[in-house]
Design a protein around this nucleic acid. Structure first.
Lengths: 241, 241
DNA sequence: TGTACATCAGTGAACGCGCGTTCACTGATGTAC
DNA sequence: TGTACATCAGTGAACGCGCGTTCACTGATGTAC
């Protein structure tokens, strides 16, 4: 339809640029608001106030309150994904252990810095809000795909211990699910390892959530960095890396 | 002060009984409301409506909205704790593996049945609400103490494998925290095992949270019971049971 | 280059709603003599 | 057993607040000829 050259995407009128800036401001203010009052307390009127504009004006940029939540969700997934990617890519391709540790630490650091955004992504669902799958699935799967990629690469390189003790049997019904996952992601890693990978995945976020959501007592753990690193090390043992 | 016999606690006037029943009704309705609108949307007015009473009347029973949240928190911890206790105690003292599996399954079953209460206890913190530690710490630690008790009993019975491979070093700062925990709970189990126990603890809740909060895709796992059981089995391997 | 028109951002008022909490009150239920 | 009084549950009105969303509008900015 549009015969303009490839630069078209970047060619923008002043109006378009002002619009983009305003949308970015709304997202930024929305995140601040999220941090103070939680997702359920996110209010378009409050964002409008902070933006220095009358409440109805934000409707020029955002369809509804739910739409703003979706934007915040996508924004947060993007930021988390970028930080995880950067941390992982700072290490050599074949430093599988290092890359996994970097991934876990990046998730934790981001979560501690942005607890409200973390809660939006991985905490209790927001009542009455349903994220639109077609817009959030892709950004929402970046971290797990990264992690799976590390383990799969390690396996292909032959450094993933195949027979981790103690061996736990995978029942048939679960094996079918795992087989579907392997097929969809094109994984070489065998099923039992995929099963353990799922546990690693949920465990990393379990550990982060406990810390971010304040489940540890206030002074049970002083050495939280060391605790988390230790947990990652043990999890590496689970998958045999 | 009160020279009445032991039965005094049960001796109650009609008024006291009516009062207790109304408080119980308020908690019950509060839980229903929690399930529909989340903790942030919990409203005394709505509870009053469901109770068939004018909104100011609930203030005869509950000091404030936050007080109701606290009551719901304590009630939920109590229910979860009771179900976990019942599940664990249905098995012989020395069936350590069975007791751990029963504990995990009881947590999951309760969480799936009462997702809103689970979210209140283990999900994102409620903005602006701080649970009073002196009233929630005791009920809030029942499950973890139960779990620790199982592992410690297994160790005392000599069935907890001391040298789980691969061995992961516990750094000194973390060792200090773990030592404090051992001392406070009077544990015989050695530090490295305590460290792994913490991971097991967070991992169980991580797995449950992922499922309850809908982090797995809608149809990634059909065999969720098997997946969870498998995760528990692998976690048992971590602690050497 | 200049003008007429279209597009867009932002305004201000309004809609109907729900919330937590306080307060003076009315009646019913319990208690002391 | 009967009466006077105290306690308590529940009422209804009010306070001040914030919310999402719609709508007709004013001006400013962009575009087509």
């Amino acid at each position: 339809m549009n015969p303009a050259p490839a630069a078209a995407a970047k060619q923008s009128t002043p109006r378009e640029r002002a619009r983009a800036r305003t949308v970015a401001d709304i997202i930024r203010l929305g995140r601040q608001h999220l941090a103070l009052h939680g997702a359920a307390g996110l209010s378009l009127r409050a964002v409008a106030r902070d933006l220095g504009v009358v409440s109805s004006a934000v409707y020029r940029y955002v369809e509804s309150r739910d739409e703003l939540l979706t934007l915040l969700l996508i924004d947060a997934y993007g930021e988390l994904g970028d930080e995880v990617d950067a941390a992982v890519e700072a290490l050599p391709d074949d430093d599988y252990r290092g890359r996994f540790l970097a991934l876990g630490r990046a998730v934790r650091q981001w979560a501690l810095r942005e607890p409200a955004s973390y809660a939006l992504l991985f905490g209790s669902p927001v009542p009455g809000y349903q994220a639109p799958a077609e817009r959030t699935t892709e950004p929402g799967t970046r971290v797990i795909y990264r992690m799976v990629g590390i383990f799969d690469a390690a396996h292909r390189a032959g450094v993933l211990a195949a027979d981790v003790a103690p061996a736990v049997v995978v029942p048939p019904a679960l094996a079918a699910d795992l087989q579907a996952i392997r097929a969809e992601l094109g994984l070489a890693v065998p099923e039992p390892a995929v099963a353990r990978g799922v546990l690693v995945w949920t465990s990393v976020f379990g550990a982060v959530s406990f810390e971010v959501f304040g489940q540890y007592g206030a002074d049970t753990f002083a050495a939280r960095d060391e605790l988390f690193d230790h947990q990652l090390e043990v999890l590496l043992g689970i998958v045999g890396l």
